[in-house]
């Protein structure tokens, strides 16, 4: 079965800090299949964000190969990367990044503005239902709690119907009770077939994932499928 969505081979990312070179990722190889729920863990500075940004086509590797649905992205031009991000990737950040003057619904529709797609009222309404904010579609971000804001951000990531949802410490700013609602949301989305890759420090979130990749100093030190899930 050829269900490999992501194939990373010897991914390396080097940052320059003055005259010093920082190996944020060193020869990282792994594959991710369609429908997986993958957690990436590791101490601060271990390269988690760097890896996620590469997977999200926000940055290119210094060396190595990265294939997304069979397309090699490491030498793709910016224009094509933009298109890939539009069509395949949903991104969720630790600090939500909602636009404060837009309503919940408008924030969710934002990606459609960039992809020049017509807003599909029904699809948007479904997303709002999924994230559980049916009655708050016309509220502004400052009227929402942190957990609700993150759910809006997840809704926004879903708007253009991505194949992969990438989340960088999505519960880092939330209390544990609220974080739990976010895990449940991820779980439901994953059960509907969405591939999810989450960077997290949170063992509970990692626990609901199918598989955990542990990074340290830019290298994978452990890649294990959790049996029974």
């Amino acid at each position: 079965m050829n269900s490999e969505l992501i194939t990373a081979t010897k991914l390396t990312k080097v940052y320059r800090r003055g005259s010093e070179q920082v190996f944020a990722l060193k020869d990282v190889s792994f594959t991710v299949s369609q429908g997986e729920f993958l957690a990436i863990m590791g101490p601060s500075g271990s390269g988690k964000t760097t890896l996620l940004n590469l997977l999200g086509c926000l940055d290119k590797p210094t060396w190595g190969s990265l294939k997304l649905s069979g397309i090699e992205i490491s030498d793709l031009e910016e224009k094509k990367l933009v298109k890939l991000r539009r069509d395949h990737i949903g991104f969720v950040f630790q600090q939500f990044f909602l636009l404060p003057t837009l309503t919940v619904k408008e924030n969710i529709e934002l990606p459609l503005l960039f992809s020049k797609r017509k807003e599909n009222e029904k699809a948007i309404k479904e997303i709002i239902d999924i994230i559980g904010l049916t009655n708050r579609a016309s509220h502004l971000p400052h009227q929402l709690s942190g957990g609700e804001m993150q759910r809006v951000a997840i809704g926004r990531a879903l708007a253009s119907g991505p194949t992969i949802l990438l989340a960088d410490e999505p519960t880092g700013n939330l209390d544990s009770v609220t974080a739990e609602t976010i895990y449940q949301l991820f779980l439901r989305l994953n059960q509907q077939g969405l591939t999810i890759i989450v960077v997290t420090h949170n063992p509970e979130l990692a626990n609901i994932a199918h598989r955990i990749i542990r990074l340290k100093d830019g290298k994978i030190i452990d890649d294990g499928v959790i049996v029974g899930r």
């Binding site: 910016e78 539009r86 990737i89 950040f93 990044f97 636009l99 990606p111 960039f114 992809s115």
Partner: peptide, 16 residues
Amino acid sequence: TGEFGMMKAIGASEAD
């Protein structure tokens, strides 16, 4: 800057 980064991540091009 963070917002612009977010916009790019969700599909905005430089031109956008």
